[in-house]
C-alpha cells in the first residue's frame, strides 16, 4: 500500500456525492439529501462521542436548538432565513456551553444521565411553550420563507446541493479538527484522561471545546433540516433523536470522519425497508444496537480502517 491520502479520499467522496446529484432517480435523490443533513448531525455527535469519548444521551437538544432557533426566528420575528440559520447556530453554541459547563463536572454513567435529563427538560420546555412552538404538532416553514440568498430551497436540485454544502462543511471541519493537535488531544482524553492531564493539557477546557463544536454542528444540522424540509416539531427533540446519532455513529464507526455518513445511510435505508413491512420499524434499530455492541464495536469504517491504516482519520 502506498502513502495514505485521507484528504484526497474524502474530497473524492464529496465529488461522487456531487455527481450523484445529477443522476439519481427522484426518490433516492430526496432520501440522500435527508441522509446528508442527518449525517452532519452524526458527525457533530461523533466529535464528542467518537473522538473525545463523551457518551451523551441528549444531543437531540442541540439538534432541536438549531431547528427551533432557526424556525422561531422566522415564525415569530420574520427573520431573513440566512440570519435565522445563524440564530440557530448561536442557540446551539450557547446551549452546548451551558450544558457542558454543568454536565462535564460528571463523567461516565452520570454524564449520560445528566445529558439525558437536560435533553428531557428541553423537550418538555418545547411542549410547555406550545403557544409559540405548537408542541408535538410542530409548525411548517412556508415555502416563501425558504429562499436563502436568492436560492429557492423548495426545489429538489437546490435542496440536494444545499444539503451537500452543509454536509461538506461538517465533514471537512471534522477532518480538519481531528488531524489538528486539538483532535489528537481529544483522542488522548478518550484513551486516558488522567495521563493527558498529567502531560499538562487542560482536559476540562478541551472537553468543553469538543462539546461546543459538537453541539454547534448538531445545531447546524437541525437548522438545515428545518429549513430544507420546511418543518419543525417537538419529536426532533425527543429521546429517539438522541439515540439515533449514537446508533449511526456506532454502526459507521466511532472516531472516524466518514463513519457517521456510512452509518446514517445504512440505517436510513434499513429503516426505510423495514417500515414498508411493519410499523414496528424501531425493532431494527434495537436489534442492530445489540448486535453492534456484541460483535462489532468498531463499526463498518472502523473495520475498513484496520485494513487500510492511515486512510480513515
Amino acid at each position: 500500500m502506498s502513502r495514505a491520502h485521507p484528504v484526497a479520499l474524502h474530497l473524492g467522496f464529496l465529488a461522487v456525492l456531487f455527481a450523484l446529484g445529477f443522476v439519481l432517480p427522484d426518490y433516492h435523490h430526496g432520501n440522500l439529501a435527508r441522509v446528508m443533513v442527518l449525517a452532519t448531525y452524526a458527525i457533530g455527535y461523533n466529535l464528542a462521542f467518537g473522538y473525545a469519548g463523551l457518551l451523551s444521551l441528549g444531543h437531540a437538544m442541540f439538534f432541536a436548538a438549531g431547528m427551533y432557533g432557526m424556525g422561531l426566528a422566522i415564525r415569530l420575528f420574520g427573520a431573513d432565513p440566512a440570519l435565522a440559520m445563524l440564530a440557530g447556530l448561536v442557540a446551539g453554541l450557547v446551549l452546548s456551553l451551558v450544558v457542558g459547563a454543568l454536565a462535564l463536572r460528571t463523567a461516565g454513567v452520570a454524564f449520560m444521565i445528566v445529558t439525558l435529563m437536560f435533553a428531557q427538560a428541553v423537550y418538555l420546555t418545547i411542549l410547555l411553550a406550545g403557544e409559540w412552538t405548537r408542541g408535538d404538532e410542530g409548525f411548517v416553514i412556508q415555502a416563501a420563507e425558504r429562499v436563502v440568498l436568492g436560492v429557492d430551497l423548495t426545489g429538489a436540485m437546490a435542496r440536494y446541493f444545499a444539503a451537500l454544502g452543509v454536509f461538506a462543511v461538517g465533514l471537512l471541519a471534522a477532518l480538519r479538527l481531528v488531524t489538528h493537535p486539538f483532535g489528537k488531544a481529544l483522542v488522548a482524553i478518550r484513551e486516558n484522561e488522567e495521563r493527558t492531564r498529567m502531560l499538562g493539557y487542560d482536559t476540562q477546557r478541551l472537553k468543553l471545546g469538543a462539546l461546543a463544536v459538537s453541539g454547534t454542528l448538531s445545531a447546524l444540522a437541525g437548522a438545515a433540516y428545518g429549513l430544507l424540509f420546511g418543518y419543525a416539531g417537538a419529536s426532533f427533540a425527543g429521546v429517539q433523536y438522541s439515540i439515533l446519532p449514537l446508533l449511526w455513529v456506532l454502526l459507521g464507526g466511532a472516531g472516524t470522519a466518514i463513519g457517521p455518513f456510512v452509518g446514517t445511510l445504512f440505517m436510513f435505508y434499513l429503516i426505510d425497508l423495514a417500515s414498508g413491512v411493519t410499523t414496528a420499524y424501531m425493532l431494527i434499530a434495537g436489534v442492530v444496537l445489540v448486535l453492534l455492541t456484541l460483535f462489532a464495536p468498531q463499526g463498518i469504517v472502523g473495520g475498513a480502517r484496520r485494513l487500510f491504516p492511515g486512510w480513515f482519520p
Binding site: 449520560m112 424501531m282 444496537l289
Partner: peptide, 9 residues
C-alpha cells in the same frame, strides 16, 4: 447502556 437501549427497542 447502549445494549440495553437496544433491548428497550
Amino acid at each position: 447502556i447502549v445494549a440495553t437501549i437496544g433491548l428497550l427497542y
